[in-house]
Design a protein around this nucleic acid. Structure first.
Lengths: 239, 239
DNA sequence: GCATGGTATTGGTAATACTATTCAAGAAGG
DNA sequence: CCTTCTTGAATAGTATTACCAATACCATGC
């Protein structure tokens, strides 16, 4: 959610340069030099180099002597880098990014719910029921802001309870997606009654240790989310 | 597959420091200074800082004045960073990493196969059948090396054909897993007849534009892989 | 076509000044 | 006494600058 620490200069350069590359303003193949960065952002060579090194580790650019810094083809980018995801969500490609992330959610969350039902400890499974209760309350009261927070917490907890580090590593991404689809008004941001019921099913199934039920309920949730995104944003091929 | 470019000094520092952190030798909470890096690796301050910046962008460490560079808790790491995944696969935690990545594969590849069947163009779907033919040939001839290469290419193509950037972004990871489980001898590296048949089903279903069939066949493949990993490596709770 | 050398640009070092953060000592107040 | 707040020094990262080395592109000329 929070952007990278802007206290350091190289992060400020990244905050300008990263989005420029991520949104395609500096398209793949585009070349710039360190000196250019020094002039454009009024920073020293050291700082410019640090920024480039970070972009390099994200596989956004390639730096070579005599050539300069070249933007790499999109297929080579580390598209799972949280920073890069945030940059793309903030730019004009946010709809595409949101769609691909939502499809990723739809793939991962059902198995994650199943794993949580199988492996999670009793105490933590209880927390899921508690959050669900709060969600029902906030949803009924029409308090959309806290509902969003609880929704994020619910899905984050499922991913953590799965006991799989990779699944858990997606919790930040899922939070971005949940926040993003309301922030960008791409979804009807009204908690629907059937969605709420399905969350209860997931929580209860995880609590009762029923992997298949948890997986099916979660799949119903995410499939509906993918559907809703198509309705609002147009079907996939019509982009 | 290939490690990061070792031509630059900061990458050589990373090649030593990264694995040390990734494998827990430098545990979370551990603190070191730039001066320490300068002395240990015989590099200048500039190079040491560049290495730290990269680790920082992977969320492995936090650098603060007066404190030094502190290793962050594992839950905060960017576990999808390809570099980090490679470091962990090379260390003592490779079994756990392989298991979590395999579960990730199992979650993502079936939906990816379905998406490929829905959206991919005719020409590229044909390539899938061709690779499958080669796989059958190599498998029959007992040529395990080229079989592995083709297997990697097969799964990479599915992920690319899905038309989802995030799925496609996992193709490198899947390649690591496929290569890793034979390299570390954690799998019986004999292509099984039923696995081969299932690959054919996937290729044919994608070619014929049958998402549900492609998804089911792929799910059969990856579920068997997860099963096999449990058999060889022990069930998940007995780690 | 192919060698070859000039040159632009990054790679790396070193010295130095600045700045943020911590921590301890001491003062002020309860 | 004990607690809390201020103050200041020590420490380590942050940033700048200048300079030399290495590299790889590219034009030139054979």
């Amino acid at each position: 959610m929070t952007d990278a620490d802007h206290r350091t200069l190289h992060n400020r350069v990244l905050a300008a340069l990263g989005p420029a590359i991520a949104t395609g303003e500096f398209a793949p193949g585009h070349v710039f030099t360190l000196e250019r960065l020094e002039r454009d952002y009024g920073v020293s060579r050291t700082v410019a180099r640090e920024a480039v090194r970070v972009l390099e580790s994200m596989r956004l650019v390639l730096s070579r002597p005599r050539t300069g810094v070249r933007v790499r083809p999109v297929e080579e980018w580390s598209v799972f880098d949280p920073q890069l995801i945030r940059w793309r969500l903030a730019g004009p490609g946010r709809t595409d990014q949101l769609r691909s992330l939502t499809e990723l959610r739809a793939a991962v969350e059902p198995p994650a719910a199943a794993a949580a039902a199988r492996w999670a400890s009793a105490e933590k499974r209880g927390r899921l029921l508690a959050i669900n209760d709060e969600m029902l309350a906030a949803g009924g009261a029409g308090d959309l802001e806290t509902f969003l927070e609880l929704d994020i917490e619910f899905h984050r907890l499922i991913l953590r309870l799965s006991g799989n580090e990779m699944f858990a590593g997606l919790s930040g991404v899922v939070a971005e997606v949940l926040a993003g689809r309301t922030a960008y008004h791409l979804m009807p941001h009204h908690p629907r009654a059937d969605a709420l019921r399905l969350h209860t099913h997931v929580a209860q199934a995880v609590y009762d240790g029923l992997p298949k039920v948890a997986e099916a309920a979660m799949r119903a949730i995410v499939d509906e989310v993918v559907e809703a995104l198509s309705r609002v944003d147009g079907p996939r091929n019509a982009r």
